[in-house]
């Protein structure tokens, strides 16, 4: 068995693949780097696969916590791992939009390999953190934000790209009597606009897919498609794509 672990800023993801590169376990724990989330997620995945750590031949760690995870045989960046995961799950994809807890990345693929990529700067704008802040202001669970946005009847623009300013802008909108649903949709569009700008810098291909926790938000995926004027789909198991990629790398590294 081969294990990939993606230790992100807000969650830890683990995937295990067998000798034939089939995914036999995949787990997400909402605790990121600096917590014991990595160990919890790994144990949960091992339990799901019905194996122990001794049965794992090779471990690849990715994500921001990759360098701090001492059980890994090797560390590979999440950019390479997301590309590897997408190559396996959606072989014809040539553009990946990965929006995680603290950053956003646009990755271009050519022949399954990373051809180019861009990451957002050290700023919460255009990331999952932005949605977390918005859901708090809207007094809604993060997972319910998409359904709330679906109820929107009018486009409400959030012009501030800065998360802190956007928060006060949203509070002003709510004070002015704007509907929660319109604000939720506006928040999704604010991210979509920001990430679309990144797509412009690196260019998009013919098939765009989304990975990362933010891709769980259907309304966000549709907002992204509307902003880009192209079809955008969420990769199945979008949160664990990086971990799956890492597990496949583990398989390849072991057999090299």
């Amino acid at each position: 068995m081969f294990l990939g672990i993606d230790i992100g800023s807000s969650s830890s993801k683990v995937a295990i693949v067998d000798e034939n590169k089939n995914v036999v376990a995949a787990k997400v724990v909402n605790m990121g780097t600096g917590t014991n989330g990595a160990d919890v997620a790994m144990q949960a995945a091992l339990d799901e696969a019905g194996i122990t750590l001794e049965d794992v031949k090779y471990i690849v760690a990715t994500g921001y916590g990759r360098l701090k995870f001492d059980k890994a045989d090797v560390q590979i960046t999440e950019i390479s791992c997301h590309a590897k995961g997408v190559q396996t799950l959606v072989p014809d994809a040539d553009t990946i939009i990965d929006i995680g807890g603290q950053d956003a990345k646009v990755i271009r693929l050519a022949g399954g390999q990373v051809e180019n990529f861009i990451m957002n700067e050290k700023c919460a704008a255009g990331t999952g953190r932005f949605l977390e802040v918005m859901s708090r202001v809207l007094n809604t669970d993060l997972k319910d934000l998409s359904a709330l946005a679906d109820q929107s009847t009018k486009a409400l623009a959030i012009s501030s790209v800065c998360t802190v300013f956007a928060e006060s802008e949203v509070i002003s909108s709510l004070a002015a009597g704007e509907a929660l649903a319109d604000v939720a949709r506006g928040a999704n569009f604010a991210i979509a606009k920001r990430v679309a700008g990144m797509c412009k810098r690196v260019g998009t291909g013919k098939k765009i897919v989304m990975t990362g926790g933010v891709a769980l938000n259907d309304n966000m995926v549709r907002s992204m498609a509307a902003e880009l004027g192209q079809e955008v789909t969420a990769v199945p198991h979008c949160q664990v794509v990086g971990a799956i990629g890492a597990a496949i790398f583990a398989h390849e590294k072991y057999h090299k």
Binding site: L67, I79, D103, V114, E115, F117, E121, K122
Partner: peptide
């Protein structure tokens, strides 16, 4: 010709994002 774009300033304290970019570029 591939390009690695690194936005920097002299007061930077955290290098994890840049580390990911640079390592990814080397992997690419």
């Amino acid at each position: 010709i591939p390009i690695l774009y690194l936005e920097v300033d002299q007061q930077m304290e955290s290098f994890e994002q840049l580390r990911t970019r640079i390592q990814s570029f080397a992997e690419m």
